[in-house]
Design a protein around this nucleic acid. Structure first.
Lengths: 216, 216
DNA sequence: ACGTCGAATTTAACCAAGTCAAGTTTTTGT
DNA sequence: ACAAAAACTTGACTTGGTTAAATTCGACGT
């Protein structure tokens, strides 16, 4: 069946054990209050082994969210024929919202809220997160370039889209953290997404009152 | 004349001494290769004093670039009557390029190049830098909001503009780091800025081939 | 000029993240 | 069954960053 030997299986299991132990301790006591030594002990592993699997303490937590890293790129690559990238991304964002996907911030599961509280409340985690976002932007830029868009435009569009997505998510999370109910916030969140993609699509000129594009 | 006593003067001097010592050592041996203990010793100051002035090792280096933190916000606030924010920012970016301002990346001063090499080559520094950029974005968002633009649009526009500026700068720096001559790269850099602001202004729809804005 | 208050500094010890080298266990391929 | 390789552990070490207590030193009223 799976062509992985006992070796690979064990590796995956220890990795998982470390990640599980870390997440449990983080959710229970907070990021700063848990030392990697604690985690290693809880996972019954030595400290160097832990660092062999996760390069930094921050990655221990971010590993769980890393799945979404190249999601935008995947959406662009996998879009149906005839649909332009921006529309595909817009549609995808709407679907994530409808699913109350944790990444949208529109989710009040206690663990999810606690996790985001940690993310935004711990500078080192926020910093790591933005680096993840940067990589996600690069992947999106590549996907756009492969779709025939010139490299500079691809890169600029990618960073704009990525940061806008993060901004929207942070907005939603803040509202939920303030006690808002995701279902009641849903319509507003969809409106915000629509507005954001309209801005991306049609430009800032209308809203910032620019009269014309000058060349000097 | 100056109403600062000896006390304030001394504080500024020790702060400067620490910053100078740090910069000299960083340029000479690289970021990782210098310990904060080295810097403290070179500045003839104790380690806690050093951390009293600079919260982290990274800030020791980023302090020098921090002047630009709220520059975009200042440009928007200080723009002449009748000029819209985007045009003012565009114009300002062009002026920075013409001045070969280090922040544009279009500058081959050895120290400047070495500094940016460190910035982009050291993960922890890059992470700190993006957090600085985030704060810069917040300041810009506030300035836009004060200019009468609604809060959500302000925030979205601000993050778009900020990341686009960073992307352009990184682009320029990469070309210079590859041995390019700033004066020869200048025209291309201006074209890139114009293109970027045209994108911001008129939106991505044209370039990404979007046909229409859909609402479902 | 004197003395006191408070801020800045130092000392010394400490904690936690991350690294390294050397040796030990365990899986794999033959 | 055995040898090579990979993963793991142990223990010690470096470095960023913090804390508490003791000390120096400029500010200011008398």
């Amino acid at each position: 069946m799976t062509d992985e030997g006992l070796r690979e299986r064990k590796k995956r299991r220890t990795r998982q054990a470390i990640s599980d132990a870390a997440m449990a301790l983080f959710l229970q006591r907070g990021f700063r209050q848990v030392s990697v030594a604690d985690i290693a002990a809880a996972a019954e592993v030595s400290k160097p082994t832990l660092f062999n699997y996760f390069p930094t303490k921050e990655d221990l937590l971010l590993d769980r969210i890393a799945d979404h890293r190249e999601e935008s790129a995947r959406v662009v690559r996998g879009r149906p024929a005839g649909v332009d990238p921006l529309t595909a991304l817009h549609q995808h964002s709407r679907e994530l919202l409808a699913d109350r996907d944790p990444i949208t911030g529109l989710n009040d599961n206690p663990d999810t809220v606690a996790l985001r509280e940690m993310l935004y409340g711990t500078p080192s985690l926020a910093a790591h997160l933005t680096r993840y976002a940067a990589r996600s932007g690069e992947a999106l830029a590549e996907a756009l370039a492969d779709a025939g868009i010139d490299p500079l435009t691809s890169r600029l569009a990618a960073v704009q889209i990525t940061t806008v997505q993060m901004t929207l998510a942070e907005d939603n999370w803040r509202r939920v953290a303030d006690g808002g109910n995701p279902d009641e916030l849903y319509d507003g969140a969809v409106a915000a997404v629509d507005h954001a993609y309209a801005l991306l699509s049609a430009g800032l000129a209308v809203h910032l009152g620019r009269s014309e594009v000058d060349g000097q």
